[in-house]
Design a binder for these strands. Structure first.
Ligand SMILES: [Mn+2]
Ligand SMILES: [Mn+2]
Ligand SMILES: [Zn+2]
Ligand SMILES: [Zn+2]
Lengths: 141, 141
DNA sequence: ATATAACATTAGATATAGTCTAAATTACTT
DNA sequence: AAGTAATTTAGACTATATCTAATGTTATAT
């Protein structure tokens, strides 16, 4: 995706296209590795302009609030982030905590009775188990 | 559930039934409110014997490892815990972060191609939106 | 029963993740 | 160009969780 498209998507969400914010968004769009805030901070500071830690966190929060970025909470580890491109589910490794994309498919909604007075926004599936890297080690333990 | 049953389930997992560990397990079994570690710590210290903060965390970790307790990570908030009784899914409120149980139903597995070399242990669904308490406030905003 | 080893608890220090503050700067509007 | 609201920043601060190492407890072996 080109720079103009990123700029437009930021502005379409009412966010100014600052160099720091652009860098976060661009990094997430070219990396489907679900980096942590610390990793993103480090990555965007490899190149000018520099971005402070607070700004990295601020921008991640703004981007999540704007719906451009998704935050994935992982038990006992730092949150991870990805740009919301195509819809997809996530696989989280029991052992290393890595988050990986799984092709999207529709999830049957719960019976409306069990939702009660709640307002449902989305159903996401979290797959758990061992990632391709950890699966072999497990077998030989 | 009675005390003996808790004792047996702990010992069945190779864990000694200490007063502190028992207190954590018993509290989780009679509370389906998905408390945080801090809330559990406070609750088990309302009654003797007292349990330290480190012990509460240690025991929660042991119980999760033993498969008796589930840890639920919530974006931007402290982890929450529940005793693994009947299988169920979770609803997480966008606004207040509360975790609520949703009746279990089977989730279709992903195409085996998209799982690749991963070993799948479970598929859980996370429902998101507004809980019954937060839904009205949202409408009138 | 006693010794021994394994398991568990504890207070407090430490680590990690993330937020807040308030001053300076920047991006957009007119 | 000037005005203004959004953004950035360093570093202090908070929240959450883990670690350390000394002490206490329970289980097993003799
Ligand atoms: Mn993803
Ligand atoms: Mn639950
Ligand atoms: Zn892994
Ligand atoms: Zn709520």
């Amino acid at each position: 995706m080109d720079a103009e498209a990123i700029k437009r998507s930021l502005e379409g969400s009412g966010l100014r296209c600052t160099p720091q914010r652009y860098a976060v968004m661009a990094f997430l769009m070219e990396n489907n590795s679900h980096p942590t805030a610390a990793e993103i901070f480090e990555a965007v500071n490899q190149v000018d302009p520099r971005s402070s830690r607070a700004t990295t966190y601020n921008n991640l929060r703004d981007l999540v609030k704007a719906g451009l970025v998704r935050e994935v909470a992982v038990e006992g580890r730092a949150a991870r982030f990805d740009a919301k491109g195509m819809r997809h589910h996530h696989f989280i490794c029991d052992r290393c905590g890595n988050v990986e994309d799984i092709e999207w498919y529709d999830v049957p909604r719960p019976a409306s009775g069990s939702l009660d007075k709640r307002i449902l926004r989305e159903c996401e599936v979290i797959f758990r188990g061992l990632c391709a890297k950890c699966a072999p080690r497990h077998a030989s333990r």
